[in-house]
Each structure stands twice: as C-alpha cells, then as structure tokens.
Computed example of a mutant assay.
Amino acid sequence: MSFIRTFKGDINPEELGVTYSHEHIVCRPPYWVEMGQDDLILDNPEASLKEVLDFKELGGESIVDATAVDYGRDIRSVAEISNETGINIIGTAGFNKGFLWSAKIPDHLKSVTGEYGTYGQWIDATSIDKLADFVISEVENGLEGTGFKAGQVKFGTGYNSISPLEEKTLRAVARAHHHTKAPMHSHTEAGTMALEQIQLLKEENVDLSSMSFGHMDRNLDPFYHNKVAETGAFLSFDGISKIKYAPESERIRCILDLVDKGFEDQILVSGDTARKSYFKHYDHGLGFYNILGNWVPRFKEEAKQNGYDAEKLVRKFFIDNPKRCFTFKK
C-alpha cells in the first residue's frame, strides 16, 4: 500500500492536496547562528504559524519542510504548527551541503553523533552504512528522537563541486532510500551538479523517478533541465518570488519549455522561503502568500496567452506531481 509520511502520521496520497514542495518553517541553522546571520534564522514560531495560515487561507493543504539535521530543525514547533493549522507537513531526514558542516553539533544531538565537535568531523569519522542507519532511523522512528517521522530523505552538494564528504552523504542517503523506500530530494547549490549527482545515484542503483532535484530555477538552462528530466526525476522550481536571481518570466519560460517537451508530470513549484526578509510576518516580505496568491494567477494568464491549459498545469504542479513525488514506493 502506498502512503505519504507526515508529522500527523501516514496518509493516503489523495489526501495531500495543494502542496508547496520545498519550504522551511522554523529553523536555527548552526552555521548561520555562528556567523551571526540573523536573516537566515527562522526563530519565531508565531510568525511562522501566520505564514502557514496565509497558505491555508489560499487553499493550501500540505508543505514539505526541507530542513535537514544540519540546518537546525525545530521539530516540535513545526509539529505544533501542523497540529494547530491542520496542514500536512512532511519532514526531512538526511543532510544539506558541505560548507554548513563546520558548525558545532548541538548538545541534544550528541546521543546520536557521539562526541564529535562538528558535523564535518562526525560525517568524516562515520561509515556510509552507519550514516545510512541514522537516516533510516529518522524515517522509521522519528526525527532527532521526537517520534515525528521523516517523509523524505535528502542530500546536497556545493557550487560546481561535490566534495568527498558530500559524496559520502549522497551514498548514505541512497542506501537509506533503498531500505525505507522514502522519496529522495537533493540540494543543488545554485542549480549546479545535478547531472553529476545522477551519475553517483546510478552507481547506487537508485530509480531516478524517486528523486526530486532542488533549485532548478537557479540555473535557467533548458538543455540542462531536459537532461535531468530525461532520467524520470522531478525538477523543483523552488525559487519563486526571488527576483534577485531571475525574473518570473524566465522561470515560467523554462517551465513551459519542459511542458513542450512532454515533462509536465515532473515539475514541482515552491519558494524555498528561508530568510526573515522573505516572509511577510517576519520582515514585511512576500511570504507564503505570494505563490498561490500572486504567482499562480500570473502563471495562468501567461500560459493561457500562449495556448496552454493553465488550470491543468497548475493542478499538476501543486497537486498531482507532489502526490506522486512524495509517495513511499513499497
């Protein structure tokens, strides 16, 4: 029987509904805390609750919280937000990217990581299979011992590079995926290295239809997108609202290019909203409201002008595709 794993328990895929497929809700990344980068610390659960309520009022039903262990999860606060709002939240096991791993490991994780001082030291000293066991436990038993189980597994790589430790976590997450059948997600720094990740995943015998590749709209290259899509993987356009990286017209152009090539069933859309300044209720930003409230109407208008069935595409990007992407394939 297929299911999607949320903080509220396992649900039928048909219950997922309108979904943001890559977000952050409450997190205190140790690296950014140590660097004094307050904008990158989402530490006000009440403000985050209001953002989720904005999403719900627009018809939103589920959010994938892509916060891995090295990005400072606040599992209990996120679970409380899920409980209070009724929104399904999918948690994430696994790892992010290498440059974050110089940060100190919080004391509450020492029972899992041992006496290693930093994430990098822990990952370096631990075998691939033992790291896989950690990820498996977070899927099957609960994130950081809370009992709230992860609904996807994640790894990440750097900008135009994959370090030895990043390759190690990729392989560990792939092996955890084989054991748990959890869907997989990757962080691609600035949208790079997805093709190189794919080669390593093939070495681990991963069925790439179980993968979603993040931040594809940080690298607005249709040829590159096509190569990723040809593997059967999902492409996450999760930088909506971030005009500093690209205008929405370019994101929409690349999305429709994939539709033209027959890949409309592999597209996910979200915001990766991970700064105070991006959130309405933290710092007067666009917040969770913007995608459903502003971007979707704009996308529909532009798609219709160019002869596309806009309603069908929006349903695929926010309902049908997430439903398949985040299902455990037993």
Rank of each mutant, 00 (worst) to 15 (best):
A246N: 06
A79M: 07
E166D: 08
T188M: 04
E46M: 13
I123N: 00
G72K: 04
R315K: 12
D39Y: 09
R76Y: 12
D107V: 11
N226S: 12
V64F: 00
P183H: 10
M216T: 14
H177R: 01
F263R: 07
A66I: 07
S102Y: 10
W32D: 10
A125V: 12
R324D: 09
R315W: 01
S127H: 13
Y159W: 15
L131T: 04
G191Q: 06
V33Q: 09
W122G: 08
A246S: 09
A132L: 00
W122V: 02
E34P: 02
D309P: 09
P247I: 08
G36T: 07
L208Q: 10
A47R: 03
L195S: 08
Q305F: 04
V52C: 08
A68G: 01
V135P: 02
L195F: 10
R298C: 12
N219Q: 15
E203I: 13
G145M: 09
L313D: 02
E311G: 11
N290A: 05
H108G: 11
D238P: 01
N44I: 07
T67Q: 03
A79G: 03
Y282C: 05
N226F: 05
A125M: 06
H108D: 15
K261R: 15
V52G: 05
T118I: 09
I63Y: 00
A174L: 05
M35I: 13
K130M: 04
T192F: 10
T180C: 08
